[in-house]
Design a protein around this nucleic acid. Structure first.
Lengths: 172, 172
DNA sequence: TATTGTTATACTCTATAACTATA
DNA sequence: TATAGTTATAGAGTATAACAATA
């Protein structure tokens, strides 16, 4: 393998770190978490739930889930692509993408447009409302959600974390 | 906030990193992922799915899910605790814990024992088979699953990642 | 009255097979 | 025949209300 340079961590919430070493992490009254404190998958899951919760909270005024946000984002970045392409890019199965699009389309955030070249497929395009909503969502995500993560982790560590997660997602 | 020392990352899969900068991450043919490549929540979710998949694969011979593994682990670390306590510690709702325990108990990995002090509650205890299965699971997780993560990330970064995820789960 | 385990239930996600209309 | 979108369906995971036994 190729190694990252050692990521030297210190001084963040030493009390927490101490408690982790004590094997009494987690705020569960006083249950011992044992090897669970060292399981990357367990930490990953708990962190993911927290982050998604915060995302929903930060963007609640627009009524967008993380999944819906990602779909709108991809439509903006890839105008004219069809359902299969957008769904595949996000790891959403085509059958499950239908109801999701129905929801976004009924809120007039996007449209399905029959392709002229291949009348089987639907080109997906953002509406003006969709573009505006996405723009507002991006601003909320950046200034509230990601900003909070930056506060907790620090910018350099946030970047390191993103890098490692991406490595796992792609090269693991 | 208190900062981690900068976690300096480099040289892991430069081609992937370059593609990330190119905004064409993800193996989606050629769709642009846009700001998604920078969303911590998105990276977190994808990494979590990969890691859980690998966990299942590594431990498939024992037919244990991550959730089941975590329950057995907590029973071992906290013998005699009741359902509510174990479930709470793992963020599992008590009603949903019932079917889960039914499954583990029917495989004779654990037992519900009516408490003498409070006849409403069930003390949870591992059976010998449960202890043996857990021991084998731990070995598989350590030598196959976590070992692979260590290869991909390097030990220092694996530790840094765990630390940051725990920080998010607890202090975010 | 409160709590433990439980049932029932519902809603979201995810996954697969099969249909239709086009190609 | 193959593909795009769709329907139907089934299985996990998660959430809440309410009940019986016990405290």
């Amino acid at each position: 393998m190729t190694a990252y340079k050692a990521a030297q961590l210190d001084t963040v919430k030493p009390s927490r770190i101490a408690r982790a070493a004590d094997d009494e992490v987690g705020g569960n009254g006083d249950l011992r978490m044992g090897e669970l404190s060292d399981l990357l998958g367990y930490a990953l899951k708990r962190a993911q739930l927290k982050v998604f919760d915060d995302f929903l909270r930060c963007v609640s005024s627009l009524h967008l889930t993380p999944a819906q946000f990602s779909v709108l984002l991809l439509m903006e970045q890839n105008p004219g692509r069809n359902q299969t392409e957008i769904a595949n890019a996000l790891g959403i199965l085509r059958p499950n993408f239908v109801a999701m699009l129905d929801g976004l389309e009924s809120r007039e955030l996007c449209m399905r447009v029959r392709s002229a070249h291949d009348r089987r497929s639907h080109s997906l395009v953002l509406t003006d409302r969709g573009r505006a909503t996405l723009a507002r969502a991006k601003k909320l995500v950046a200034t509230k959600h990601e900003a909070r993560l930056n506060e907790v982790l620090g910018p350099a560590n946030r970047a390191a974390l993103l890098q490692m997660l991406t490595t796992i997602a792609e090269d693991f």
